[in-house]
Nucleic acid binder design. Structure first.
Lengths: 343, 343
DNA sequence: TTGAAAGCGTTACCAG
DNA sequence: CTGGTAACGCTTTCAA
């Protein structure tokens, strides 16, 4: 770079003032002569003075930066969460450093460490599915380092959490399907300990019990939710006898792949088999048939998470208090499910 | 936070050494007694010492942070670019601060300014479509501030750019359609000055000339590429008489919406009308019919951009040299277009 | 081989 | 109302 950013010292020197005076003028602390302030402000404007956040950060031990840890970016659910976080951060002069884990514990541990190195003021994290060891988060808790967990609930960790009611959503969905006459309801899901899929699985089981429908392990397919594995999963379901009459998929991409397999095999949706997704991606209403799904408040989760971190930093709420905020999802009924008999 | 991060001073005090000695030990500069180094390293490990990037940044006037400016995150093209940037950044110990413009010039100007405030070492930017005033970038160029432009080409700006051959892709696509027998080829696109859509429009025109097909302005629909506007655009095309026999859409989402409108109106794809998208999103092969599209090397663009910035920072290439790297896209023929007669 | 001191840009405190 | 000084954590001279 040619031109260097102007510093307080530059302004002070040019104006024959002390650095302190310039600093005060710029910060408008009041204890300054209006005329002095005026000339400082003018020169600062002219020189395009920008306070150096590094210097401030060093002094205040605050970087105005928040670390965000999410599994992946190419998933509308997470990118919406990120947008929500970004909105609130932006409005409050905070920057974000985002790390992606691809659900790997190892990547997550590294991400936490990197963010700490970067001296972020707080961390918003969606813990990796495969998480079995919480020590990297527990360390943060022990240090009273501000952290908000989203989407996934590590029961061992006492932190502030923002979750969605996956259990209830699954319950409602199964209810709906049963009322529409379905009895063999399959589930393609991720059953990793922390996965939202695990909670949906629990909700599914609860619903079956409620309706006194026997649980059939064969109807549960555990998959990693990629397109390839989804196709495999759907194919496996088609080898069952009798066939399932409904399939609940862990997200809309899985549902999309599943519908393809069903249709390729000459099955009618929803007449032969109903299909349900989760997330309400932008393509879901364009699938044929339009996909029934569960719309999740991703943007809201992101905003809320960032707001909570800010409140911690401002001492408006205690750091890492045991708070669980559970946000509701919305059921979006379209045409991939048989109409419920009960209205 | 309870525990504070250990500093050199803490280690020095505990070991009764000077800060300089500890610093040297940690940096392994050689000029130090092995035994001294050993005990320093041990304590540093125990205290989980992490160098403070703020202090380093202040000293070296380098933050190891790169600013990224992209239009939006919920677009697989840009999120893939971001992944590519992130990969190389991560491998080289750089962090990213990402800003989203939603194609707004105002937001872009603000983003550049914010990034400068954050003292990023360089900027990778995909200029907003609606850009008409380049002064915010020109200032960077004048200051010899490292910058790489991606995806969109501002001819007025002499910078290092990574582009895709949109002109050629459109040309090839029209070629293909003409060879498949199409004559009334419509274009739903963004015609903003910097838009890739504009370049595709030029390629389209060139192809028409080549095949001596008269240009019909009515076949060009300028849209902002949201789902709602895409639906409107497609509906408008259906009011033409004679109907278009092919529609080239500016991205796969537009194509998806367009196909829906066509099908809702009883038209067969590709028998009545062929449809083409751009981007090859993950849902595109699942549409019915599977969408013919142009796959763009987004991940590669991201990696390349970050590599170039790094090379500038390492003085391996001059800063903001007039370099244009044009990457090829790949045509993905699926079933939404009539088979070309020529093989 | 080690230490002391200056300096990066800023704020806060204490004098005047 | 203004100025000087210390401090934040680090590297880099310069001396010892």
């Amino acid at each position: 770079m040619k031109k260097n950013q102007a510093s307080l010292k530059d302004i002070a020197k040019a104006l024959n003032l002390s650095i302190s005076t310039v600093s005060r003028a710029l910060r408008d602390t009041g204890e300054i002569h209006p005329e002095t302030q005026k000339i400082v402000l003018e020169l600062a404007e002219k020189l395009q003075y920008k306070p150096n956040p590094l210097a401030m950060g060093l002094l205040k031990n605050r970087t105005h930066t928040i670390g965000v840890i999410i599994p992946e970016i190419e998933n509308s659910y997470f990118s919406n969460i990120l947008r929500g976080i970004d909105k609130i951060a932006d409005e409050n002069g905070f920057r974000l450093i985002t790390s992606y884990t691809n659900e790997s514990q190892k990547a997550e541990v590294r991400a936490v460490n990197d963010l700490l190195c970067s001296r972020v003021d707080g961390i918003i994290a969606c813990p990796a599915n495969e998480l079995t060891d919480y020590v990297h988060f527990q360390n943060l808790v022990d240090d009273e380092f501000p952290i908000v967990h989203i989407d996934r609930d590590c029961p061992e960790l006492i932190t502030t959490k923002i979750l969605t009611n996956n259990f209830t959503s699954a319950l409602i969905m199964v209810d709906y399907l049963v009322e529409a006459g379905c009895r063999r309801i399959a589930l393609i899901t991720n059953l990793e300990p922390l996965s939202v899929g695990r909670q949906r699985y629990d909700g599914y089981q609860e619903a079956l019990r409620k309706h006194q429908i026997p649980f059939d392990r064969k109807l549960i397919i555990h998959g990693n939710l990629g397109i390839t594995t989804s196709i495999e999963a759907a194919k496996n379901l088609l080898e069952l006898d009798p066939l399932p009459d409904a399939i609940i998929c862990n997200n809309d991409t899985v549902a999309m792949a599943t519908m393809k397999v069903l249709k390729d095999n000459g099955l009618k949706i929803p007449e032969d088999i109903s299909v349900i997704g989760f997330s309400d991606d932008h393509f879901s209403s364009f699938l044929e048939p339009a996909l029934t799904t569960v719309s999740q408040p991703a943007y809201l989760i992101g905003m809320k998470a960032m707001e909570l971190i800010l409140q911690m930093l401002n001492n408006e709420i205690p750091i890492n208090k045991d708070i669980r905020i559970v946000l509701d999802s919305a059921v979006v009924i379209r045409n991939s499910t048989k109409a419920s008999l009960i209205k």
